[in-house]
């Protein structure tokens, strides 16, 4: 009798839990599904009431139009080149800077770090015009480096790395030094491997920042053959004539790399969260 009752409550509990999870999954997946619906239907279809939830047969037509309008493959290449280069270099710079702030004693360290924190608070738009002027003077308008360089030393990423690196025991670094390792070697063979979860988090953050970066690439990349994905998609939004099929398709394509990148780094990311709590 009691056994049965227990069983029922467990089943009830589980049902409740799974219902909740199901709703969560539905809520987070539906926008993506809706995007996919939009991408496979002609433009006006997403306006219909009640909403049309069946994928249509316009995928290839939308793709053709999209490619005709913005040269989607070229645009994806631009985005990948810019974002991957940026992420790799920026992770290096930010972790090196974070390491220096966390573990080295040098004159003016704290004031410089304080200024770095202040830099986080400078709104993006304030730097827009001066930075643009700089790029124009150097003759870098319409180049990859104009998009990649300005944010390489990303204050928030440096801050994040510094906080994480503080947890590295000084004795570990001392031991490496006693064994005769140079500072570079310590950084690459001792510090970075222990920081993999933090590096993954920062890499995901920087990748998403640059992949979605809009205003700066818009301003500095004038030539449509240099456009990144967000800029190209936005160029499809005119005034009263908008082809939503193309836009939804472009948006769908633009979410794929982020998903892939996240899945690749996910294990590092999660092992970082669980690190130390479970002994295997």
């Amino acid at each position: 009798m009691t056994n049965n009752k227990n069983k029922t409550t467990t089943i009830l509990k589980k049902t409740g839990l799974y219902t909740l999870l199901g709703i969560g999954v539905f809520l987070s997946m539906f926008p993506f599904y809706w995007m996919f619906i939009g991408a496979t239907n002609p433009s006006g279809a997403i306006f219909s009431m009640p909403p049309n939830l069946v994928p249509g047969d316009h995928f290839f037509e939308n793709l053709r139009n999209l490619n005709e309008n913005v040269g989607i493959w070229r645009v994806i290449m631009n985005s990948l080149i810019i974002t991957l280069t940026f992420t790799v270099v920026s992770v290096m710079i930010c972790s090196a800077a974070g390491f220096a702030f966390a573990k080295y004693q040098f004159k003016g360290r704290d004031p410089i770090f304080f200024m770095l924190l202040l830099a986080i608070m400078i709104p993006y738009h304030v730097t827009l015009i001066p930075l643009f002027e700089l790029m124009a003077n150097v003759g870098w308008l319409n180049t990859y480096q104009a998009v990649i360089l300005p944010h390489l030393a990303y204050p928030f990423a440096i801050f994040l790395m510094r906080q994480n690196m503080r947890s590295i025991p000084d004795s570990l670094l001392e031991a490496a030094r006693v064994d005769g390792a140079g500072e570079m070697r310590i950084f690459f063979t001792v510090v970075l491997p222990t920081m993999r979860p933090a590096l993954a988090a920062v890499a995901i953050f920087l990748f998403m920042f640059q992949w979605n970066n809009f205003l700066w690439p818009l301003v500095v990349l004038g030539d449509s053959s240099m456009y990144t994905l967000p800029v190209a998609l936005s160029s499809l939004v005119g005034m009263s004539r908008i082809d939503y099929g193309q836009i939804m398709l472009g948006t769908t394509l633009s979410t794929l790399p982020i998903m892939v990148f996240f899945l690749l780094l996910q294990r590092q990311f999660i092992s970082g969260i669980l690190g130390g709590s479970v002994k295997e």
Partner: peptide, 15 residues
Amino acid sequence: MKPWKTMLAGALSVS
């Protein structure tokens, strides 16, 4: 280069 530095350089060139 730190953002505030680029900003300063940019502001100078604007003026």
